[in-house]
Simulated scan of single mutants.
Amino acid sequence: MKIIVVSDTHMPKRAKSLPKKLTEALKTADLIIHAGDWQTIDVYNELSSFAPVEGVYGNVDGEDVKSRFEQKKVLDINGYRIGIVHGHGQKGSTEKRALSAFSEEMVDVIVYGHSHIPIKKMVGDLLLFNPGSATDKRRQKKFSFGMITINGELHAEHIYYEDKQ
């Protein structure tokens, strides 16, 4: 199974369309996960033309997105539990808020966004994964999204690129 992971697309404010590097990967996706800050439901509609989409809402999302998605979600996929949350809030770092959101649940992976910083690291037996942003790199050197493959084992990686066109 190939899962494309995105967050913080902020469309149409930060981009008028999905970057070509991302759309090429989406063509072969079995599932798409969006970790919030879509900005409009149009992003969901576009992503849905490639593969089924799961996700959560973020702090800049309007009622159209909030009525379609929850604040956090757990997916059971091929024997792995993947928690999804945007990571916004008041106390602690984005990473700590993401971890806290699933402190009462057993998950193998936490996918989160908000910071626009690509992160892949283990916290004990838990994989913490932030795809960065495909359209708003902020202070990062490159734009990014994530890819999780599950083929018996789970593997996560970032896809980096310089041009969001």
Rank of each mutant, 00 (worst) to 15 (best):
L75P: 07
I82P: 02
E70G: 14
D76W: 13
V85E: 07
V85Q: 02
Y57D: 05
I84L: 01
R81D: 10
G62A: 09
V85K: 05
I77A: 03
G87Y: 01
E54H: 01
V74N: 02
T94C: 07
K91L: 14
V74C: 04
H88I: 08
E70W: 05
G92R: 11
P52T: 03
V65W: 02
P52Y: 08
G87L: 04
V53K: 02
V74E: 04
E95Y: 13
E70K: 15
V65M: 00
G55K: 07
G87Q: 04
K72F: 09
D64P: 05
H88A: 13
K91E: 13
G62I: 00
H86S: 12
I82C: 07
N78G: 05
F69P: 01
K72Q: 14
Y80N: 00
S67Y: 07
G79H: 09
I84Q: 06
D64R: 08
I84Y: 01
F69W: 09
F50E: 00
G62V: 10
L75E: 04
E70P: 03
Q71F: 13
V60M: 14
V85Y: 03
Q71M: 12
F69S: 07
G89I: 06
N78K: 14
I77C: 00
Q90P: 02
D61M: 03
G83F: 00
E54K: 14
P52R: 02
G79C: 11
I82E: 05
V60S: 06
S93C: 11
E63R: 13
S49H: 12
G58D: 12
L75N: 08
Y80F: 15
V85H: 02
V85D: 00
A51N: 02
G79S: 10
L75D: 05
V56R: 10
R68F: 10
V85G: 01
D76T: 15
V74Q: 01
V60N: 14
G89L: 01
V53Y: 07
Y80P: 04
N59V: 12
E95R: 15
R81H: 14
Q71D: 14
V56S: 11
E54M: 08
Q71L: 05
Y80S: 07
S49A: 12
N78D: 15
K73C: 08
H86W: 12
S67M: 12
D61F: 08
R81G: 07
D76V: 13
K72M: 12
S49Q: 15
K72S: 15
I77P: 09
N59C: 11
Q71K: 15
V53W: 05
G58H: 10
Y57R: 06
V85N: 05
D76P: 00
N59P: 09
G58P: 11
N78E: 15
N59Y: 13
N78W: 06
D76E: 15
G83L: 09
N59R: 09
L75W: 06
V56W: 03
P52G: 06
G62K: 11
E70M: 10
E95I: 12
N78Q: 14
H86Q: 12
